[in-house]
C-alpha cells in the first residue's frame, strides 16, 4: 500500500508548531517511515507537488497572496488540519484586527509603502474547509502524534474539547485560583497542554483558546473578586487567541 503523502506548510507564524513535529525526536524517523513527507520546506528541499493525503497548516492568513495559496492547497488536499493558535484563531497577529493596521505598519517600518498586508489576521477555517484542528500556542506534541497515528489508522483522533480545568483536576494539581487567589483562565481554556501553567504555580493564560463550552462572564466576575482590573481582564482575553469569538466578546466587555 502506498504511504500517505504528508505536507506541512506555513503562513504567518513563528514556525513553532511545525517545529513540534521535528521535536518528536523519538518518533520522527518512525513517522517519516510511515508517511511520505512530500512537502515540508522547513525540513526538506524535496518539495513534491500535490495531491496530498494530509496537510498540516500552520499560521494565519494576513495577505491576499496567502489566501490564494491556501485555497489552492485545499484543492489538492484530502485531509486538512490546522495546527496552532495562528491557524485556528488568527493568532497573536489578530491583535491587528482591533487596531488601525496602517498605523501599526507605520510604527514598525520606516517605509510603510513597501509593506503589503491585510487589515485582519484570520484563521484557516475562515477561508477553506478544515477537517481537524490542533489548538495551542504552540500545539502539544502528544496531541500531534495522536492525530498522525489516528489518521494513519483510519480512526478519529481523540482530542478532548473540555477545559484545562479538567486536565488540572485529573493531574491532581492544587487549584491556583482557589488556593492561592491567582487569576487563571483554566476554566474556559481548551484542554491539550496538560495544565502546564498551574503546575508551575501560575494561572493559565489561555494559549489553547476557548474550550467547547465556556462561561467567560462568570470567570471574569471571579477575576474581579480576586482583584483583577477591567484592563487586566481585557488583556488576558486579548492575547494569542484574541479573535476567537468567546475571548473576543469577553475582552470587548472589559475594554
Amino acid at each position: 500500500m502506498a504511504r500517505p503523502r504528508l505536507a506541512v506548510v506555513k503562513f504567518a507564524s513563528c514556525d513553532g508548531c511545525q517545529l513540534s513535529l521535528l521535536d518528536c525526536e523519538d518518533e520522527l524517523l518512525a513517522v517519516a517511515g510511515a508517511v511520505e513527507i512530500a512537502n515540508f520546506p522547513e525540513a526538506s528541499r524535496a518539495m513534491q507537488p500535490g495531491p496530498y493525503d494530509v496537510t498540516l497548516v500552520e499560521g494565519s492568513i494576513t495577505t491576499e497572496h496567502d489566501a490564494a495559496r491556501l485555497r489552492a492547497l485545499r484543492d489538492e488536499t484530502l485531509i486538512l488540519v490546522s495546527i496552532g493558535a495562528c491557524a485556528t484563531s488568527g493568532g497573536i497577529q489578530a491583535l491587528r484586527n482591533f487596531a488601525d493596521v496602517g498605523e501599526m505598519v507605520r510604527a514598525v517600518y520606516a517605509r510603510p509603502d513597501f509593506i503589503n498586508t491585510l487589515a485582519t489576521s484570520t484563521p484557516v477555517a475562515a477561508h477553506v474547509k478544515v477537517d481537524y484542528e490542533l489548538r495551542g500556542c504552540p500545539i502539544d506534541k502528544g496531541q500531534l502524534l495522536e492525530l498522525v497515528s489516528a489518521l494513519l489508522a483510519g480512526r478519529r483522533p481523540g482530542l478532548p474539547s473540555h477545559s484545562v480545568c479538567v486536565e488540572c483536576k485529573l493531574a491532581g494539581q492544587v487549584c491556583v485560583m482557589v488556593a492561592h487567589g491567582t487569576p487563571c483562565l483554566g476554566p474556559v481554556t481548551h484542554a491539550g497542554c496538560g495544565s502546564l501553567c498551574p503546575g508551575y504555580h501560575r494561572g493559565c493564560y489561555g494559549c489553547f483558546g476557548p474550550a467547547e463550552t465556556t462561561n467567560t462572564t462568570s470567570l471574569a466576575a471571579q477575576w474581579q473578586a480576586l482583584g483583577a482590573s477591567q484592563r487586566d481582564i481585557h488583556r488576558a482575553f486579548r492575547t494569542f487567541n484574541a479573535a476567537s469569538e468567546p475571548f473576543r466578546k469577553e475582552a470587548d466587555a472589559h475594554g
Binding site: 503562513f11 504567518a12 507564524s13 513563528c14 514556525d15 513553532g16 508548531c17 517545529l19 494576513t62 495577505t63 496567502d66 493568532g91 497573536i92 497577529q93 491583535l95 491587528r96 487596531a99 493596521v101 498605523e103 501599526m104 505598519v105 510604527a107 514598525v108 517600518y109 509593506i115 498586508t117 500556542c137 504552540p138 493564560y205 487586566d232 488583556r235 492575547t239 494569542f240
Partner: peptide, 29 residues
C-alpha cells in the same frame, strides 16, 4: 507577512512582554 510585534507590544503590561515576545520565534523563544 509583517507580524507587527513592536506595535502589538505598545499598551501591554510589562509583565506580559516575555510571553508575547516569545511568539516572534518558535525556534529561539
Amino acid at each position: 507577512p509583517p507580524r507587527l510585534f513592536e506595535a502589538f507590544l505598545r499598551g501591554r503590561a510589562a509583565t506580559e512582554v516575555p510571553d508575547i515576545a516569545a511568539r516572534i520565534c518558535g525556534i529561539c523563544p
